[in-house]
Amino acid sequence: MRFSLSFPGRRGWLVGSFVGLLSWPALAQQPAPAPRDTSFTTHSAYVKARKQHPTITVARPAAPKTIRTAPNLPYCTLEGGRALRLDVFYPKARRKQTFPAVLIVHGGGWRSGDRSQHVPLAQQLAARGYVAVTAEYRLSTEAPYPAAVQDLKTALRWLRAHARTYQVDTSKVAIWGFSAGGQLATLVGTTAGDPLFEAGACYRSRSSRVQAIVDADGTLAFIHPESGEGDDRKGPSAATLWFGASKTERPDLWQQAAPLNHVSAQTPPVLFINSGVARMHAGRDDMRRQLDALGIYSEVQSFPEAPHPFPLFNPWFEPTVEYTVAFLRRVFGQ
């Protein structure tokens, strides 16, 4: 697939993006709960990616006028008073109408990144008839594996508990994740009912099950011939920091966190959206073979020329949205 696009000067959109980012309530008001690793931001990813792709721009389309926003909502308060927060983007519609929902999970090596990076995606999904939620989760600077997985399952339970407020069809809930967020999304989606990941007291009467998964360049296996995770030769890798141990010290944890090892007849349909960086989707083909054997639908959409953080940039942002919507409409029968 080819795209021929023209864009304004870089300085203009960088200033506009920065001003827009500061004005958004969820970011302007939320204090940092722990020392943050800022090694992965949209800007740093852009600076790196444009060396090979000089025409890319950060994807920040104008917020659609057809949606509502409920920013910076606490979805669970942890011991010690730490509040986990999320943002909801939903269509303006008649009160009796309901919509499928999508929980969006940011990337950043389980250590960096921020939920604000996928606000444009959430807004565009809301404009297409979805209740889109961007949720924070505890990073490895604050809590090791499996806290992030537990947090995201709690966010799903919160979503169902507030379905009436945001007009959610609770039978049609998806999870979408990029990079580390893709691994987390797929692990959440393949471990429904697993008590290891259903921790905490928040909304325990609700289900965290999802009916669809979208994995954008998230690894499916850590200890795998295709995986590049766990290279500690120059210092602890992102995964080692998340697990709190190297893969030689605690291979059981690294295997436990691999979505590939949790595929079952209860796994929902999966869409894989991938860049040209093969190690970022390690285990994908093995997982698809397992899904095929179980009669579970999956599909792959690829941008072979794209860098790893493709969902953040034009020209890949819009087709990523369209692939996501087409898949969800097929799965949810809209």
Rank of each mutant, 00 (worst) to 15 (best):
H53M: 01
G108A: 04
V210Q: 02
L86D: 00
I175Q: 04
D37V: 04
F313N: 01
R160C: 04
L84P: 05
L260T: 12
R157K: 07
G113Y: 01
V214R: 02
N72A: 14
A161C: 02
R206T: 04
Y90L: 02
H106L: 08
Q256V: 03
T57P: 02
P311L: 02
W242Q: 14
L159M: 12
R288V: 13
L14N: 01
Q123M: 07
S205Y: 06
L156I: 08
A258I: 11
V214D: 03
L78N: 07
V88G: 02
S23K: 15
S6Y: 07
V300R: 14
V102R: 04
A180D: 03
E322R: 12
P259E: 03
F303A: 00
P100L: 10
A45H: 02
A70V: 04
V131H: 01
R11D: 11
V210E: 00
T324A: 12
R2T: 13
G283H: 06
A201Q: 10
L328M: 11
L152M: 15
T267Y: 05
M1Q: 11
A132G: 05
A239N: 06
A192F: 13
F178I: 01
F7C: 03
P146M: 03
S246W: 12
R164V: 11
R157G: 01
S208T: 07
Y145H: 14
S39M: 05
Q255H: 15
A326G: 14
P309W: 01
P225Y: 10
Y137C: 09
S298E: 02
L27M: 14
K247R: 15
A127S: 15
V214S: 03
G20S: 09
F310A: 01
P236R: 13
E136S: 12
E198Q: 12
Y90E: 04
R128S: 11
W242C: 07
H53V: 01
Y46K: 03
P33I: 08
V102E: 08
P319I: 04
I223C: 06
K247Q: 13
R284S: 08
A49S: 05
R115Y: 09
I175V: 15
W254Q: 03
T190H: 07
G9C: 07
Q29I: 09
D217L: 07
G193R: 10
L187F: 00
W242R: 11
G20P: 02
I296F: 11
T41V: 06
A93D: 10
A216M: 15
A238W: 10
R160G: 03
A192P: 02
P91C: 05
P146Q: 04
S205P: 07
I213C: 08
L14W: 04
V102C: 12
T240Y: 06
W24Y: 13
F272Q: 08
E322P: 00
V173H: 00
L241W: 02
A174S: 08
L73E: 12
L260R: 07
T141Y: 10
F99S: 01
V188T: 08
V133T: 06
A212W: 00
I67F: 05
L152D: 08
V325A: 13
G108T: 04
M280R: 14
A293W: 08
P225M: 09
G81K: 09
F310Q: 00
P304N: 09
F40P: 00
D217Q: 08
P146F: 02
A278M: 11
